[in-house]
Simulated scan of single mutants.
Amino acid sequence: MQESIEMVACPVTQRVIIISPFPRGIHEVVRDLSDGCFDVLVFHHLEQGLRNALSADLLIFDLTSYREEEGAAMLHSLQHQETGGIPSLLLVKESLFGLIDTAQIQQELLVWPARPQEIVYHAQRIIRSGAGNRAASSRLEAGTSPAIYKDLWIDKKKMSVFRSGVKIELTKTEYDLLVKLLDSEGAVLSRESLLEEVWGTTFMGGSNVVDVHVKSLRKKLGDRASDPVYIATVRGVGYRLAD
């Protein structure tokens, strides 16, 4: 008589986001993490992964499919990439590891392929060590839809805005302005279009009200028109996200 196998559910799960251009090459990572009681989300593109970063406990960037020159360039790019305080792990080939100045690397590194279950050990260790730096992520429940831009996190379901883990109190109009700029993905929005979309009016003579509210929004974000971090002015036209 065949014995039944008792299935035990994971008592606690943590979420890992993997950003990999070719996930098939790291299927063992996904399998081991899933077996280790992690919820795993995989994104092909960096932008997609970062938009969902706030809902994760760990980000894993897969550099194993890049050639040495491409991998080094991607590594340099990731050095300046904001992850909203979410800890990250870089998977690299052994050939790339030899070209890296580890003293200049802020993220954790793991040479892949690695020993069985090593990815689980590293994920658990990194999440534990970085738990104290993720105050904002614990405020968002699973299933929310945060948008991320530099160190700004926007939970659209709760209409909440965080900067570096600290909630910023915005009026509804200021919040709507910020969301319109984020949704534009860097495109220039004229004062007239903002007036119509946010205030619901096409009254051209009142476009200066947009300037007043953008000024207030900038002040709350700690931004400056002369040296913008978040909102740039396009003279004579309107506004866009800063570079």
Rank of each mutant, 00 (worst) to 15 (best):
V166W: 12
D57S: 11
E94Y: 10
K220Q: 04
L152G: 00
V40P: 11
F38D: 03
M204Q: 15
V214I: 13
Q79M: 10
S55W: 07
G200Y: 08
R15C: 00
S65R: 06
T201I: 06
A73E: 15
V12S: 02
V30P: 01
M7N: 12
R218M: 09
Q81S: 02
V120L: 13
L91H: 07
V166K: 15
G222Q: 06
S77D: 12
V8P: 03
T13I: 11
L177H: 09
L195N: 07
E141M: 09
M159Q: 13
L59A: 01
F61R: 00
L50G: 03
Y230R: 06
G130V: 11
T201W: 07
I17L: 03
F203Q: 14
I154Q: 05
Q104K: 15
S193Y: 10
P11E: 02
Y121S: 05
M7G: 01
S226V: 12
L50T: 02
K150T: 02
I19T: 05
T173K: 10
V8C: 06
I148D: 01
L182N: 05
I127Q: 00
A242D: 06
A56W: 05
I105E: 11
D35L: 10
S34R: 10
K167N: 11
R235N: 14
S137F: 02
I126T: 01
G49L: 07
A73Y: 15
V29R: 01
A232S: 05
S160W: 14
L217I: 11
Q106P: 06
G165V: 09
P11M: 01
L63I: 14
S95T: 10
E141W: 13
T83L: 04
A103S: 13
E6T: 15
V179E: 09
P21R: 07
N52M: 09
A72R: 15
E118N: 12
E82N: 13
R139D: 06
L217V: 13
V29C: 12
L33E: 00
H45T: 06
A56S: 14
I26G: 03
K172D: 07
D176M: 13
E197N: 14
T202L: 10
I19L: 07
E3M: 09
